[in-house]
Simulated assay, not measured.
Amino acid sequence: MSIVVIATITPQDGKLPELTAAFEEATPLVQQEPGCEQYALYSDGSVIVTIERWASPDALEAHLAAPAVTALLARAGSLLAAAPEIRTIEALGFGDAVKGD
């Protein structure tokens, strides 16, 4: 069963463009990591939200130590207003498998 992660990242005032650029650079590398089934980013103009799906707990663990993530954290750390809010969630299994789990 896949592992789904939702992370909400809040930048310091005025730092959203820099934070977005950091994620834009890292995203193609993250999406190529083994076990990455989904890595999508969204914003409402004040925060960045990632919705991630990993093939296994091991794939997620490897992602957290991967070069793209460590470089992203080094670059983005000084841009954050607070630590990211990260939630690991499980699909409830309702509906169409393509449009939802």
Rank of each mutant, 00 (worst) to 15 (best):
residue 1 M to R: 10
residue 4 V to D: 06
residue 6 I to L: 12
residue 7 A to G: 09
residue 9 I to E: 07
residue 11 P to Q: 01
residue 12 Q to E: 15
residue 14 G to D: 10
residue 14 G to I: 08
residue 15 K to C: 13
residue 15 K to M: 14
residue 16 L to F: 05
residue 16 L to E: 15
residue 17 P to K: 01
residue 17 P to C: 00
residue 17 P to E: 02
residue 18 E to P: 05
residue 18 E to L: 11
residue 19 L to M: 10
residue 19 L to C: 09
residue 20 T to L: 04
residue 22 A to W: 00
residue 26 A to Q: 03
residue 30 V to A: 14
residue 31 Q to W: 00
residue 31 Q to R: 15
residue 31 Q to N: 12
residue 32 Q to W: 00
residue 34 P to T: 05
residue 35 G to V: 08
residue 35 G to W: 00
residue 36 C to E: 04
residue 38 Q to P: 00
residue 39 Y to F: 06
residue 42 Y to D: 12
residue 42 Y to N: 07
residue 42 Y to W: 06
residue 43 S to T: 15
residue 43 S to K: 08
residue 43 S to F: 02
residue 43 S to A: 02
residue 44 D to R: 14
residue 45 G to M: 03
residue 45 G to H: 02
residue 45 G to W: 06
residue 47 V to P: 10
residue 48 I to H: 08
residue 49 V to P: 11
residue 49 V to E: 09
residue 49 V to I: 14
residue 50 T to M: 06
residue 50 T to P: 03
residue 51 I to Y: 10
residue 52 E to P: 06
residue 53 R to C: 01
residue 55 A to K: 14
residue 55 A to Y: 10
residue 55 A to E: 13
residue 56 S to A: 13
residue 56 S to Y: 13
residue 58 D to E: 15
residue 58 D to G: 13
residue 59 A to S: 15
residue 59 A to I: 12
residue 60 L to Q: 13
residue 61 E to K: 14
residue 61 E to D: 13
residue 62 A to N: 14
residue 63 H to K: 11
residue 63 H to S: 07
residue 65 A to W: 02
residue 65 A to P: 01
residue 66 A to N: 06
residue 67 P to W: 04
residue 69 V to A: 04
residue 69 V to S: 04
residue 69 V to P: 03
residue 70 T to W: 02
residue 71 A to V: 10
residue 73 L to A: 14
residue 75 R to N: 09
residue 77 G to I: 09
residue 78 S to Q: 04
residue 78 S to N: 08
residue 78 S to V: 12
residue 80 L to H: 09
residue 81 A to C: 11
residue 81 A to D: 15
residue 81 A to F: 05
residue 84 P to C: 05
residue 85 E to C: 01
residue 87 R to P: 01
residue 87 R to Y: 05
residue 88 T to R: 08
residue 90 E to T: 13
residue 91 A to L: 13
residue 92 L to Q: 09
residue 92 L to F: 15
residue 92 L to P: 08
residue 94 F to S: 10
residue 97 A to K: 09
residue 97 A to I: 09
residue 97 A to L: 13
residue 97 A to N: 07
residue 97 A to Q: 11
residue 98 V to P: 05
residue 99 K to W: 10
residue 99 K to D: 10
residue 99 K to R: 13
residue 99 K to V: 07
residue 100 G to V: 09
